[in-house]
Design a protein around this nucleic acid. Sequence first.
RNA 1: GCCGGAGUGGUGGAAUGGUAGACACCAGGGACUUAAAAUCCCUUGAGCCUUCCUGGCUCGUGCCGGUUCGAGUCCGGCCUCCGGCACCA
Length: 822
Amino acid sequence: MLKYSFKEIESRWQKIWDEQQLHRSPEKPTKEKYYMLVMFAYPSGDIHMGHFRNYILGDATARYQMMKGKDVLHPFGWDSFGLPAERAAIQRGLRPAEWTYRNIEVSRETLKKTGISYDWSREVISSNPDYYKWTQWIFVQLFNKGLAYRKKGWVNWCPEDKTVLANEQVVDGRCERCDTRVEKKELTQWYFKITDYADRLIDDLDTLPGWPENVKTMQREWIGRSTGLEVDFIIKETGEKLPIFTTRPDTIYGVTFMAIAPESPIIDRLNLDDEHRKKVEDYKKEVLLRSEIERAAVGEKDGVFTGKYAINPFNGEEVQLWVADYVLAGYGTGAVMAVPAHDSRDFLFAKKYDIPIKVVIHPDEKTTLDVADMEDAYTDYGVMVNSGQFDGLVGHDAVEKINDYAESKDIGRRKVNYKLRDWLISRQRYWGAPIPIIHCPKCGQVPVPERDLPVLLPEVENYIPKCRSPLADVPEYMNVKCPGCGGEAQRDPDTMDTFVCSSWYYLRYADPTNDRAPFDKDKLDPWMPIDKYIGGITHATGHLIYFRFFQKFLKDIGWVKDDEPASELFNLGMVCGENGEVMSKSRGNVVSPTELMKTRGIDMTRLGMFFTSPAEKEVIWSEDVMVGIEKFIKNRFFPLAANFRGAKLDLKSYFKLGDLTDFEKNIYIRLNQTIKRVTDDIERLQFNTAVSALMELEHEYNSESIQSDALNDYIILKVIQLMAPMAPHLADEMWHLGGQRQSVFRSEWPEYDTDAVHFDAVKIAIQVNGRLRSEIEIARDSSEDDVVAAALDDVKIRSYTEGKEIIKKIYIPNRLLNLVVE
RNA sequence: GCCGGAGUGGUGGAAUGGUAGACACCAGGGACUUAAAAUCCCUUGAGCCUUCCUGGCUCGUGCCGGUUCGAGUCCGGCCUCCGGCACCA
């Protein structure tokens, strides 16, 4: 039996592929193009099963598309700036750059050994000056359009990492990376004005049928668009306007108090008397000490009365003005109108502080609400009551009428609000792209001119985080001449969040060494958009929103042609440890594919991963799956190559069924069915069933029963092609053993013979009253009458139908007959 | 609380409204062997009947209903698990 020596096979074919530059993409596609992208990686020095699964999915797809005759772009790179790299370096007492570049070497070598079809000539490293020069350039473009700006505000602060975090990096009130409780600080920071793109980011999701529904839903909710009315209440004493946002203008006659967020600057303008000022300030201090989690807890609500009153512009009523923790400073205007009868939070608050509750909505004409009986607010739409001229209006119509009235009287205006906040991108850390801004006492914020980019990250003595950027302590870095007036000025000390770097890397792959521009549009356009983007669901509301934002911005300034970066997104399932928990270094349950590849071979490891489960499902990795696949490959599939008979044949031709013996005809049809199945399965990334299909075919194949040398060799070669995307080294070796000179990846993907996908005879299930009672074999495409006659002739069926009347016959051609009796 | 997704043998998992459990793992049995490993073959959802015919019947895809000749698949209501959002006015 032909022995499968994977080490030899792997090194041979990797060498040949290298020599032939098989994975090299043309500068521009000349044929139909396919841009296959996997999310680039932080260079940890080793890859784990999750990465491996991601990369082999991308690889199998890329190889399949290659065989479909397309020009494939399948690049890889390193997301090498950022906190994880810096933290790892600190732990080991190394400089971040040293640690990062050493790891890139190791990681790259590890990946190269997997034989994945990356075009390494296009490798992108985000911490290289030739890359971050253009990250900075994009920052400047955003700045020039007013979309990068600095403001003071309450921000998320991670005390462990000693830096600020974006909203997207706070999970359940904790730092996404280190799980530390996030604090609130009032700081001046850099933001990207992603909120300007909120509508497009939501609306364009409808143009992405190739994106999973759950990701689109998550993004819609994250952006959180809501339409309503901004109404100007009046502060009684000062006459100042106090605008609030509401989505329920129809409840406005039910307002019995107002509430302001503790952090809101509105409070400072209220002119509080000493007694109330002290109470409010004490309350604010106490609130700021609370954790995010406590503050976000639904249920308990508290606040303090300010001693001031506000006037409802609709009815002139005076209501108490409170400061309450449940009002968010960052959303809407930072103040709300409170309608206890029709909002659960207001209801709880009013009950707690004995504030009046006034019903202004009844569920319908007949059903009325009584405050005394209410245990919670009635929050559905209904009929307006106690609302002056608006009484009797219903639901959305009521809302529209109120909106019209407010606008006509100039006491309010229709307004759209978003949960999405501007993207906080500055970090007080060393290992990132420096923010290319110079602060000049005369000229203000001045962007570094393009000719002076990149602003190089300086070497520093001490990069240990200490609550402000380590760059701030490097005078030779900080002190510069203002590009505007030439006077003494200072650089911005902060660096950019690594998510900025990862928001445009997919564009750089098209032109990775360009030193005059981020990329050449002529080189990029033919490759875009990304045809398939594979990665984990964890990026749904972070990276996958950011990179869409960058794409849209770059389109607006004429650098890219598409509104959306990726036409298809695939979320692969996570790989978990034996107990079903996430693999992570801290848990110490990381399974490395490297060891497995050494002991069982790359292709075997790939097949094991493919076979264990469909790609979108989470898998609990266990080596047990290797047993079956290994037996199949070693004992059955690879030895097929020993059966070649050296026939001359044309792989593009089909056989005539009439020329074949019964066995040959049967196996030829099975081959074509398998081609169809495997092709469909690969298209939808369902590799587990693709492998099953090949196993089934192999079980039916028997060389001795095939007389035609041509057919025998034809079957084996086709099967090798079908296996090639999944087990590339193995396939090329077998292809070669079959006398083929070119790599199997230069061959054309099999097309099935449409005349040979069905057998002449079919087995038809016979049901009586919907229950399976028998099965008959009959010529394909027999008439219904023939099938019925055959069924009624069947002994088993007769016992069910004899003496009974057949009242209905349902016939599904070539599959099933259901006889309904009596 | 709201929004998604999923519940199928001992296990991983298959099934355009049409024969549920493909393909594997595990387990059991057998062949080969002095023996073991390896390999190959057979059995394998549960229960019952019949018994050597390699048959038959009943039940069975989280639970309860519905639509249909026919439901794992569609509809309604629950339960459980996973993921996301979570005081967004």
